[in-house]
Design a protein around this nucleic acid. Structure first.
Lengths: 158, 158
DNA sequence: CGCTTTATTTAGAATAATTCTTGATAAAGG
DNA sequence: CCTTTATCAAGAATTATTCTAAATAAAGCG
């Protein structure tokens, strides 16, 4: 019943760096894959403790750092809130809901690049991009709409 | 010689919130306008101390927060590095140079919106956007190019 | 198989940016 | 003036994260 690791070829990748896919790293990775809701390090810690009670928070931080360096998960930031972690490796942005706190993946449109919209100064070299939105997720936006029935729509965007 | 405040109509805006454009707030704002290089709070503190030696770091933090809330300056983030502050109110992204640490404004192309590139789930409400790039600013990219003469171009993007 | 090396884990201490607290100061409004 | 409310300043507190050091474990090798 308990599924084995969902990291098929990752052992080879990590070994290529002289590192090992330890039980702790696998547990952290599987935890991220099992509930892909962009948890913080502390949330990962609490979840992974369920299957590995002896793991420490420092180890969770270490494992997350290693997984990020190996490119297996993304480190996600919003303002100066605690970091979150995301195993979706497709290029995408994040929407942080002000109401429920959920983080939603926002896909890049097919065939589009950021350079279509942002005028990068010539000669610039871009290595990493991070796009984040703050607002209301579809569920909360709909709920607010319902609650505000009778009011003008304008106060939603206020 | 010493220029007066560069915040013409801001006194009215801030007063509308029951707040006051105090000497400290004006000094912090003028400091940001005087050297628009995205300083951290501590950098603002050191600069503003030149003209107002008695100001405290806590006050600089308070002033920056107020200026951000009033919409006079933008709070800029990158990963979990210390916050930076930007008085450019046009919609723009930021490029953080890995080599020299400079932060460069990247303008939005005319007539473009983020929705051209990101497929926002329907019903989403977006209140705030933040786009940040990490890489090399034009100067550092050029310098690296010169240094790496003879090598293939590929190691630049590596 | 033992031995050595190197990576990893862990607990707790340390760090650093930011926020909070409290008392003093000062401007505003009647 | 006098009261109210906003602001400032100094330092304490908070908090996410990183660092340290000792213990553990896996890998490589003779």
């Amino acid at each position: 019943m308990k599924p084995q690791s969902e990291s098929p070829n990752y052992d080879a990748t990590i070994a290529g760096r002289g590192l090992r896919m330890t039980d702790q790293r696998r547990a952290v990775y599987d935890t991220l894959m099992g509930q892909r809701d962009h948890p913080t390090a502390v949330e990962v810690f609490m979840r992974v403790k369920g299957r590995m009670p002896s793991i420490s928070l420092a180890t969770v931080y270490n494992c997350l750092e290693t997984l990020v360096e190996c490119g297996f998960v993304r480190h996600v930031h919003h303002d100066r809130e605690p970091s979150r972690y995301c195993p979706n490796l497709e290029e995408h942005a994040h929407l942080f809901c002000e109401s429920c706190g959920a983080v939603t993946d926002v896909p890049l449109r097919a065939e589009r690049t950021l350079e279509d919209v942002w005028e990068m100064p010539r000669d610039t070299i871009v290595l990493k991009r991070e796009v984040s939105f703050r607002g209301f997720c579809p569920e909360c936006a709909a709920r607010k709409q319902a609650e505000g029935e009778g009011d003008t729509a304008s106060n939603l965007k206020q």
